[in-house]
């Protein structure tokens, strides 16, 4: 697997920030790929789950926050339940989402949600969606 690093030299500030938000120790991950193997949506991610961790370890802030992977992660916890090192990747994904939302990114526009979706969908979909995808 070839990982191309951005122009900036690896910054520890970003990985430390993600560690402090998520409460996870990123250095525990040794890239076995179990998370990517079990992830139901990894096929639709531009950066695979295990690569997300590696890129955060390497301080690739812009690339990670720009990826669609953090928004497509559904927090199903299949990765955590199969991780041999008990790294909770769902917490890392959530901290990346929160960082991105705090910087003003809007993955979902509430105004643009279809009327029919709001009328027919269960409240839990709206509440969970707002919590995960709306600043």
């Amino acid at each position: 697997m070839k990982i191309t690093l951005g122009p900036a030299s690896p910054s520890k500030a970003f990985s430390r920030l993600v560690e402090s938000l998520s409460g996870e120790d990123l250095s525990k991950c040794y890239q076995c790929g179990n998370c990517t193997g079990g992830c139901p949506v990894s096929f639709a991610m531009d950066i695979a789950p295990s690569q997300v961790i590696r890129m955060v370890q390497l301080g690739q802030e812009e690339a990670v926050l720009r990826s669609n992977s953090i928004w497509r992660c559904v927090s199903c916890l299949q990765c955590f339940s199969r991780c041999p090192k008990c790294v909770d990747l769902s917490r890392i994904m959530e901290s990346l989402r929160r960082l991105s939302l705090r910087r003003g990114y809007e993955p979902v526009s509430v105004k643009a949600l279809p009327e029919e979706f709001i009328r027919r969908s269960p409240q839990m979909a709206l509440v969970a969606g707002f919590r995960k995808l709306v600043p």
Binding site: C76, S121, A125, L133
Partner: peptide, 11 residues
């Protein structure tokens, strides 16, 4: 035990 897509129903 697989995921149905959950809150991605919104997006």
């Amino acid at each position: 035990g697989e995921c149905c897509g959950s809150h991605l129903a919104m997006s």
